[in-house]
Design a protein around this nucleic acid. Structure first.
Lengths: 139, 139
DNA sequence: TAGCTAACGTTAGCTGGCTAATGAATTGCG
DNA sequence: CGCAATTCATTAGCCAGCTAACGTTAGCTA
């Protein structure tokens, strides 16, 4: 298990699971959280815009939006000026989730990074940035 | 993007994609690679054993095995002594993939970690271990 | 020895990624 | 002005995870 990539994969899976568990308590799944965070900052974006900001494909956002609509977190509305566009708007429930979900996320981040020394945290952050730039120079 | 968790997610997705691309050139998808690596070291394991070693659920291994069987990488064989067990055996093609896939994986790891300083590498590894232990104390 | 229980693989159905193909609407060019 | 090209969202279908439910086989116990 000395392989960095392997450790990485394992840590990621555990983080995803912990994250999903923390959010699910507030009716939000781990993928939906990302969409919500963008909408909390700027409501009424289109699937394409969200995909761009989240660096995810458009169908991924569309599918998430369908589930979130069914869950009552957002609504779909056709753009008045350009009928090709769909605008995603938060419902009251979607807005209400901001505080608890944000708190849950912060608590998880705190719990996970609490054990790290400042050096470890800084070096990890720097390493992650380098890895991202290596694999996606455009970013 | 200052959030460690966000950087983590992004880096993981890029790594997965790069990994999948590298392996696909040799007819192996990213999830199958993990199964193969265990079988290269020890052939004839059961789905449950593989799931335990990979820290993945049994259905995940079963589904991967089905695709790998269709791809001609492994075969399923019922255990003679205990008919509940299924043993997964490498085919010639599965064995033949070891060298190229291993090389591709090593090349990716090398490329990704090349930019990191020894301190970053060590600190990241240590940080990952701590995170894993925090989220899964049993490990 | 008969029957219950535990172990194991598989199937069904979910989330969350992806690409490719489709269809509707707008834009732009001739 | 009209038609072609572009730009959207959606749908279809794939891989890779998961949990829960199911059926079969061993094994143990009464």
């Amino acid at each position: 298990m000395t392989d960095l990539l392997r450790l990485f994969t394992r840590a990621h899976k555990l983080l995803q699971a912990a994250s999903d568990e923390a959010m699910s308590a507030h009716g939000v799944r781990v993928g939906q959280n990302l969409v919500l965070e963008v909408l909390w900052a700027e409501d009424g974006l289109t699937p394409g815009e969200l995909a761009g900001r989240l660096k995810v494909s458009t169908p991924t956002v569309v599918n998430a939006a369908t589930r979130m609509e069914a869950a009552g977190l957002i609504t779909r509305r056709r753009d008045d000026a350009d009928a090709r566009l769909v605008r995603l708007h938060l419902t009251d429930a979607g807005r209400a989730a901001e505080k608890p979900v944000g708190a849950a996320r912060a608590a998880l981040a705190q719990r996970v990074t609490a054990e790290l020394t400042p050096e470890e945290r800084a070096a990890t952050e720097s390493a992650l940035r380098k890895i991202i730039r290596t694999l996606d120079p455009e970013s």
